[in-house]
Structures are given as structure tokens and as C-alpha cells.
């Protein structure tokens, strides 16, 4: 009995270490993602971005975090205290919990579960609770409007996103993320972005809408409702919302890399000359590179497009994306049945 208890304890400790090994780099990435965002958008607008703290402003994220943590958390007078404090936690927890099924390479994954993709969908759909509760508990009209907007938007775009994933499921024949990546073996042209191009585009745009990022950031539209659902939050509570938003963006980028861009696989697989070198091998290096590329796209779009009007967001989600994805799911089924796209070739 003591033997098994000891084994269980060791198992739990190893599991916790694995979680720490994912979460700590994730938080650091969030910190430097905010730096990257300000630098990238800065240079796109012919400015330098943060450049005062540390060489080239490299310590700016730490200064920001410190400032946020030292600020007072203000509880609005008529707010629902318990839910007001609970809301940021509810938005952060699913954003982190989703990372357990992400495969960084063929063995680096915390939980290699069979229904991984469904789990991810479930986690991303839970994320909306933090926003709704924050808006309601703040007892503020602006916050409530923001939360209603984001809630309707996320529920709508989840449908298009789910259908885009159905296409991936049909071609890969599995809900397990590791197997989905392995089904894309064979180099750049064998990844799912090519046979599922419309779904790929819909997925990444829905991802933007799902994370409430520009040009779909009406949830916090500064020009109309000040800052939306987190208008009443200050200090560390606001920092937690911020952390959740950026963790979600990184998650969507990582997912796009896994589902449509071959995960850890190398684009040069099987080519002569480079196919046998390090560049031709699949490794975590490729996965991170692809993720950072999609993260960069988020920033690029923010700097490029003006904010959508709310009715147009809804129209795009329901009347454009849902029909496109439904149609292309049929096309993907035809690909699969007639063997036009072969798994893992």
C-alpha cells in the first residue's frame, strides 16, 4: 500500500513539474508578446515602440507587470464582490488548461488524450464565462454592454470554428492532436492548409474574433464603451484578464500551427539536400517558429485593419463563414473518400 502511495505521489510530482514546465515559459511568452506587439506595431507606424527600460526596451514587460501588481484593486461600490473577483480567474483557468493537450513535438505533451480536439473546443467555450461574469458583476453599463457583445460574438464564431475543425477531423481521421500532426507528414504541400484552404482562412479569422482581438475587438471598443467588460478592473485583477487574452492568442496560434501547418513537422521533409539535415527533421523548433509566425499575424492585422462594425461581425460569422465551412466540409469528405488527400504520406 505504501509502495503504491509512493508511486502515486511521484506521479503527481512529475505531472506538476510538467505543468510548471509549460506554464512558466507560457507566462514569459505572454510578457514578451506584449513587448513584441508594441515594437511591431511601433515600427509599422514609423515609431520605435518601448525603448527606455533596458537595452532596446527589453525590460519593459517587467516594469509593466510590477506597475500593475503595485496598483490598488478597486472594488466598485455596488459590485457583486465574490463574482467580481472570481471572473478573472474563470477567464484565465481555461486559457491555461487548454495547453495540456498541445503536442510540442512527437513526445512532448502533458496529456496525450484521444478526444484532444474536443477538449480544446470545450475549454475555449468555457472562456466566455469570465467575460460575462465580469461584465455583470461590475454593475456598470459599459462593462455589461462589452460582455454582451463579446459573449454573442464568441458563441457565433465558435460555430464556424467548430466546422473548420470538422474538416481537419475528416482528413486526419482522429481527434488526437499528435495523430492529426502525423497525418500531415510529407512537407509543406502535404499540410492541411492546402486542401483545407478556405477552412484555414476561416479558422484563423474566427480565432481573431474568438480572442476579441482587433479588428474584432468591439468587446472593448474604446471609442464607444471605454474598455468593455474590464472597465472596472484595476491592478492585478486587470493583469489576469490581460494574461488570459494573450495566452488565448498564443493558444490559437499554436493550434493553427498544429491543425493546418503541420505542427512540429519540417516544411523541407523529403527534399534533396536539406531533407537529411537538421532542417529536414521535425522538431520543437519548427513548432515554435510556426506559432510565432501566426502570433505575428495577429499583430500585423491589428496594425492594418480598422475595427469592424458590430452588425457586420455578426453577418460575417453567420452568413459568410458558416456556409463556407459547411460547404468545404463536404469537399473534404470527397477528398477523403476518393483518396485525393492521403493521410501521413
Amino acid at each position: 500500500m505504501s509502495e503504491t502511495l509512493w508511486d502515486q505521489l511521484i506521479y503527481i510530482v512529475i505531472l506538476l513539474l510538467k505543468i510548471v514546465a509549460v506554464v512558466v515559459p507560457l507566462i514569459l511568452t505572454v510578457a514578451y508578446y506584449t513587448y513584441m506587439e508594441r515594437k511591431v506595431i511601433g515600427y509599422m507606424q514609423l515609431r520605435r515602440g518601448p525603448n527606455r527600460i533596458g537595452p532596446a526596451g527589453l525590460f519593459q514587460p517587467f516594469a509593466d507587470v510590477l506597475k500593475l501588481l503595485l496598483k490598488e484593486i478597486v472594488l466598485p461600490a455596488n459590485a457583486n464582490k465574490f463574482l467580481f473577483v472570481l471572473a478573472p480567474v474563470l477567464s484565465l483557468a481555461p486559457a491555461f488548461a487548454a495547453w495540456v493537450v498541445i503536442p510540442f513535438n512527437d513526445w512532448m505533451v502533458i496529456a496525450d488524450i484521444d478526444a484532444g480536439l474536443l477538449y480544446l473546443l470545450a475549454m475555449s467555450s468555457i472562456g466566455v464565462y469570465g467575460l460575462i461574469i465580469a461584465g455583470w458583476a461590475s454593475n456598470s453599463k459599459y462593462a455589461f454592454l462589452g460582455s454582451i457583445r463579446s459573449c454573442a460574438q464568441m458563441v457565433s464564431y465558435e460555430i464556424a470554428m467548430g466546422f473548420a475543425l470538422v474538416g481537419v477531423l475528416i482528413l486526419s481521421g482522429s481527434l488526437n492532436l499528435t495523430e492529426i500532426v502525423l497525418a500531415q507528414q510529407g512537407g509543406l504541400l502535404d499540410w492541411f492548409w492546402l486542401p483545407l484552404l478556405p477552412l484555414f482562412v476561416v479558422y484563423i479569422i474566427s480565432g481573431l474574433a474568438e480572442t476579441n482581438r482587433a479588428p474584432f475587438d468591439v468587446a472593448e471598443g474604446e471609442s464607444e464603451i471605454v474598455a468593455g467588460f474590464h472597465v472596472e478592473y484595476a491592478g492585478a485583477a486587470f493583469a489576469v484578464f490581460f494574461l488570459a487574452e494573450y495566452a488565448n492568442m498564443i493558444l490559437i496560434s499554436a493550434l493553427t500551427a498544429i491543425l493546418f501547418a503541420g505542427g512540429w513537422l519540417s516544411p523541407f521533409e523529403g527534399l534533396w539536400l536539406v531533407g537529411d539535415t537538421f532542417l529536414g527533421q521535425g522538431s520543437i523548433f519548427w513548432f515554435l517558429l510556426k506559432t510565432v509566425f501566426f502570433m505575428y499575424l495577429f499583430l500585423w492585422w491589428r496594425a492594418t485593419y480598422p475595427r469592424y462594425r458590430y452588425d457586420q461581425i455578426m453577418r460575417l460569422g453567420w452568413k459568410v463563414f458558416v456556409p463556407i465551412t459547411m460547404g468545404w466540409v463536404l469537399v473534404a469528405a470527397v477528398f477523403s473518400v476518393f483518396g485525393l488527400v492521403v493521410r501521413g504520406s
Partner: peptide, 26 residues
């Protein structure tokens, strides 16, 4: 029954209850 468990969360918690909450709050 992991499929049923996750679908319960996905459909009821993620979609149905969100709309419920939406209406109750309004």
C-alpha cells in the same frame, strides 16, 4: 465516457448555459 463528458461541457456549459445566463442577466 470521455466523449460524453467533454460534449456535455462543450454543448451545455459552453453554449446552452451561456445563452441562459445571457437572458437571465438581461
Amino acid at each position: 465516457a470521455e466523449f460524453l463528458a467533454i460534449v456535455l461541457i462543450l454543448v451545455y456549459v459552453g453554449a446552452v448555459m451561456v445563452l441562459f445566463l445571457f437572458v437571465v442577466m438581461m
